[in-house]
């Protein structure tokens, strides 16, 4: 995945667990894990907005571009 969602550092800075973030943002832990592990295909603005609100950051601080192969098409 060329775009990575950098949650770990933000969570560490805020001393927040993944479970707590999931509760606050209103998504499941499974979906947050998909975001964290780079398996997500897309992120909704509403999710991004909630993440930025709860982690007190800007979208650009959460999304990191990592050079590499693009996700292969899902069938």
């Amino acid at each position: 995945m060329a775009i990575r969602v950098d949650l770990d550092k933000r969570l560490y800075d805020r001393r927040m667990s993944l479970t707590e973030l999931a509760d606050r943002v209103g998504v499941t832990i499974a979906n947050l894990s998909i975001l964290k592990t780079g398996k997500a295909r897309a992120i909704r603005f509403s999710t991004l907005e909630a993440l930025c609100r709860e982690l007190d950051c800007q979208p650009g601080e959460l999304l990191v571009f990592v050079p590499g192969p693009l996700n292969e098409d899902v069938d």
């Binding site: 997500a40 295909r41 098409d73 069938d75």
Partner: peptide, 12 residues
């Protein structure tokens, strides 16, 4: 449809 479903599942 299956492809779109997969996309929707992986859209967080």
């Amino acid at each position: 449809g299956a492809r779109l479903r997969r996309e929707a599942e992986l859209t967080i």
